[in-house]
């Protein structure tokens, strides 16, 4: 019982670490890229935006398959020995979450009143000051973008299963553990894990929502 509990804790922390890291990296990619796509004016912007928006609906199993093909020993990146590691799951999850963060960032910035931009430029804002002010203005939808990205990866299973392999103590995360325990007929444990996953997702989103709403009242 004790050992089962410690394993559940280990699985939970691993899920949080992996999906947290993937969300953070997606933010680092998605915020600048989304800003560029939302505010920029260059050839191919619409095509790129369409690609990103398509990426928002990428099925995790498809991502899992492609990342697995890259990382298998027989694949082009096989020499990195990344298959069946948490890093492999992070890579797949970034590919799932980055388009979500990017697309929603672009949409958030585009929904701002265009006159705000002109006004800021009129006040003599530099390029960076402009971007920073617009991010501040759009902080509510930007935090929502972050939550959507995290939600996409913490709940994802196809990619984790394929590139992680659901290996005990190494790459078993909450979602893959739920599938395993259901397959084993351990519905009690599966249900407990499912509730845990729900509670964790709730807590993370609750924290982010608090930050978001606090920002409103400033």
């Amino acid at each position: 019982m004790i050992s089962e509990l410690s394993e559940v804790i280990q699985i939970t922390f691993l899920s949080l670490q992996i999906s947290g890291a993937a969300t953070l990296i997606s933010l680092l990619i998605g915020l600048p890229l989304g800003t560029l796509l939302g505010l920029g004016n260059f050839g191919g912007r619409q095509l790129l935006l369409s690609l990103v928006n398509t990426g928002m609906g990428l099925p995790p199993v498809v991502v899992g398959l492609f990342v697995a093909m890259l990382l298998w020993r027989s694949g082009p990146l096989g020499g990195l020995n990344l298959i069946y590691t948490p890093t492999a799951i992070v890579i797949a999850q970034v590919i799932i979450a980055a388009p979500v963060v990017t697309g929603l960032t672009a949409a958030a910035l585009q929904s701002l009143d265009p006159r705000l931009r002109l006004q800021l430029l009129g006040l003599g804002a530099s390029r960076w000051q402009l971007v920073f002010e617009l991010w501040r203005e759009a902080r509510l939808p930007l935090l929502a973008a972050l939550m959507a990205g995290f939600g996409a990866v913490i709940s994802e299973i196809g990619a984790s299963m394929m590139v992680g392999g659901n290996i005990r103590y190494q790459t078993r995360v909450l979602t893959t553990a739920i599938v395993l325990e259901t397959g084993k007929g351990n519905f009690d444990l599966a249900t407990r894990l499912a509730i845990l996953l729900f509670v964790i997702t709730f807590l993370v989103n609750w924290a982010l929502t608090r930050i978001q709403q606090k920002a409103t009242h400033q």
Partner: peptide
């Protein structure tokens, strides 16, 4: 090429599980 230099892996091994 020996060993997987993943920071996560190391943490997972050191993790709270016994």
């Amino acid at each position: 090429n020996k060993g997987v230099a993943s920071p996560f892996l190391v943490q997972a091994e050191k993790g709270s599980h016994s």
